[in-house]
Design a protein around this nucleic acid. Structure first.
Lengths: 233, 233
DNA sequence: ACTGAGTGGAAGATATACGATTTCGTGCAC
DNA sequence: GTGCACGAAATCGTATATCTTCCACTCAGT
C-alpha cells in the first residue's frame, strides 16, 4: 500500500537482501503495531520491555523511537518516556485539512500524467469499495479508500509532496482502529465523489478544478464527523 | 524567526530553564551548523568526532542524527555513516513547489484572521526588504523574506500545515548560504508581490484568490533558478 | 483526616567496551 | 604497470554498566 516510486526523504530501508539493523527492526515493529492499533494512543512504550521482547538492548530501541517521534507517531518526555501519540479532534481535523490541500495539489499536478490503466486501476478500487460497502465491511472499505487515494497521488512526480502525504496518512493511521475513522454517512457520497474525480481526470479537466474537487472531497469527511459530534456554534 | 505559536508535532525542546539533554544539545548544534552552512551538503558527520567535540559519548549524537535524518537534513547509510544531505535541483524544485501549495493553503486559511497589526508588521518587514535591496545586502534580504512569509503563515491555526511549512523551510535552509539562494532578478518583483498579497488580505479578497497569488509568487522563484554545482569536501 | 518531607524502586540518559563492517593502503604475483 | 589479496585503521552497531531523574508510597506532624 506504499507508494509506487521511491521516496527520497523517507529514511532508506536499506537493501532488501541483507539483514536489517536492529534499530530498523525495532522501528518497523513499533511502527506497525502503532498503525495496526496493537498499541493504541496513550500506550506507554517502555524501552527495556521492548528491547527484551525483540531480544536486543535498549540502544536500538531508543533510536527507533526517536524516528517515530520525529514522524509524530509517538510523543516523548525527557526522563519520563515515550507513549503512542494521542490524536485529538483538533489534530484530526488539522491533518485532514492539510491532506485535503496537499492531495489536491498532488493530483492536480499529476492531472496530465494519468494513463488509461491508472484510471482503470483507481476505478477498480472504487468498485471494490462499493462492494465492501454492500458487504458491510468497514475495515476493508477504509483500506480501499487509502488505496484509491494513493493510486492517484502516487502519479504525482513531486516527491516532497508525496512525503508530506505519507506523513499525514501515518498520523491518521493511528485512529484507523478507533470509532471515528469510519463515518458511515460519508461512505456513499465518497464513492460517488471518487467517480466524479476520475471523470474529471479522464476528460482532461482544468487541473485547478480537479484540485478543488479533491479538496472538497476530503474536507467533507471531518466536517461530517464534527457535525455528528457537535453542531457548530 | 520561528513560529509565534507552539507546534505540536515538532519535537518538544523541553522547558527553558532546565539544562537540555545531551542529545538535544547535539541536535541543536548539528542542526544549526547545517542550516548556517558550516557543514555544507555532503559533509561527513563522524559520530566519534562530534561526540568528542561536544564532550559526550556517541550515544546522544546518534540520536540527534536520527532525528536530523527523519527531517531529511542528513542522509545515513548503514555501516557507512551520516552526511549532510545533498540538495539537488529536483529536490529544490519539489520543495519550492510544495511550499507554494502549502503556503497558499495556510495564508488563505488565515485570510479572515489577520489583525491590522499583523498586516502592519508584514508590511514593515517588506519595507525593510526594499531597504536591504537598496543597501545591496542579499543575506539580509533572504532573512527578511523568510520573516515575511512566516509572519503570514504563522497566523494560520492549522498546526499540521504549519509543521509542513517548517519542514520545507528547513530543507531550503541548507542552501541558504550558497549562491543560488538569492535570485537577483526576482528581488524587485517579489517585494511588489508581497505588497499585492497584503493588499488582497486587507481588502478581504476571496481566500482562493489569495491562495493563488501566494502560490504564483513562490512558484516564480524556482523558475528563475539556475543550477550550479556544489563543492564537495 | 490532611499535608508534606522522606524514601525506594522503576525507567530513562549516558558512558564505556567490544565486535562487526567498510575502506583504503601496501605489497606481491603476473 | 596492473590487479588482486591481505591487513590495518577507521568507523559504525550493539551490549552492558552506571548514574540520574521521576514517581508513588509511606509516615510523621499538624
Amino acid at each position: 500500500m506504499s507508494g509506487r516510486r521511491p521516496r527520497t526523504a523517507a529514511v532508506a530501508e536499506s537493501g532488501g537482501t541483507i539483514a536489517p539493523s536492529k534499530s530498523q527492526r525495532a522501528y518497523r515493529l513499533l511502527h506497525d503495531r502503532i498503525v495496526d492499533g496493537t498499541y493504541s494512543p496513550g500506550f506507554r512504550l517502555v524501552l527495556d520491555a521492548i528491547g527484551r521482547e525483540l531480544d536486543m538492548s535498549v540502544v536500538p530501541v531508543r533510536e527507533a523511537i526517536r524516528r517515530l517521534e520525529a514522524e509524530g507517531l509517538v510523543t516523548f518526555e525527557r526522563n519520563i518516556g515515550a507513549r503512542v501519540a494521542e490524536i485529538d479532534e483538533l489534530e484530526y481535523h488539522d491533518t485532514m485539512e492539510t491532506l485535503s490541500y496537499v492531495e489536491g495539489a498532488a493530483i492536480s499536478l499529476a492531472a496530465g500524467l494519468y494513463s488509461a490503466s491508472d484510471v482503470a486501476a483507481a476505478r477498480a478500487i472504487n468498485d471494490e469499495m462499493r462492494q465492501s460497502l454492500a458487504d458491510f465491511d468497514p475495515v476493508r472499505f477504509t483500506a480501499l479508500n487509502e488505496a484509491f487515494h494513493r493510486q492517484l497521488t502516487d502519479v504525482c512526480p513531486n516527491q516532497v509532496l508525496g512525503d508530506v502525504i505519507d506523513t499525514c496518512w501515518k498520523r491518521l493511521a493511528r485512529l484507523r482502529q478507533s470509532t471515528f475513522s469510519f463515518v458511515p454517512n460519508r461512505a456513499v457520497p465518497a464513492i460517488d465523489e471518487h467517480d466524479a474525480i476520475l471523470g474529471l481526470i479522464e476528460e482532461g479537466a482544468d487541473p485547478r478544478r480537479i484540485e478543488l474537487a479533491v479538496r472538497a472531497h476530503r474536507l467533507a469527511t471531518p466536517d461530517a464527523y464534527l457535525h455528528r459530534t457537535q453542531p457548530k456554534p
